[in-house]
Amino acid sequence: MKATGETPSGVLDRRVRRSPAVQLWRWGILLGLLILWEAGARLGWIDGFYFSSPAQILQTAVVKWQQGNLWADIVYTGASTLLGFVLGTVAGSAVGLVFWFSRRVALVSEPYLIVLNALPKLALAPVLVILFGIGFPSKVVLAFLMTVVTAAISAYGGVRSVDPALETLMFSLGAGRLRVFSHVVVPSAMPWIISGLRVNIALSMAGAIVGEFIASDRGLGRMIVYAGTTFDLKLVWVGVVVLSLLSIVMYGSVVLLEKALGKRWSAQRT
């Protein structure tokens, strides 16, 4: 007998999800939209100068790729996004978790967290570029700032959700505060931290791109801005499509990471 915690509707949902009909519809609609776009541009329904067309975008991308710049730009933007995301998540989660040790520190810090969270960090981009230069570091810092506060808030939420009876139990077993922290608080907060990852990877990428918009000599964001100022709208579209693909890849990786972590730190309590 194995209780998987799966509801009948959950089973149904999964079966429908994997059914060929659903897959067919999903890809079919995408293909239909692409054909409509291409046809619209060729038949003059939409202005090809502004909206380009899938074929033209693909052609421009291939040329760009052959010149060797595209891959370098992808790596540049991807690296600053990832680095900012990892640093921000680790640092933010650490701050949120440490609040467990002092209720007073946590209560004093709470309003600051809220204000920092509300602060539009992207507005700081010009200052950061001046502080850290037009190179890689300013992009990482912006991506970091985008993620660190939300990560701290997630982790702190997790800390507050810890069952006080579990803490009592651990203390009664003779555990010190550090042991209670590592055995109960961190694992209890893990689902909260994990649930923040999806949001944070998108925020981090937004930070990296805006950093490149402001001032940069590399990256997909810079490529888009450059193409825009030279009215090379085909290249702008290449940038948008490539960024979307990069974003999907990163999001997908985070979802996989979530699944792996989620299995380890299962929050199922029945």
Partner: peptide, 17 residues
């Protein structure tokens, strides 16, 4: 001086992970 007696509560308080 905690940790000198065994303590069991109404909730099982097993760590779910």
């Amino acid at each position: 001086k905690p940790g000198q007696v065994g303590y069991m509560l109404q909730k099982d308080l097993l760590l779910p992970w």
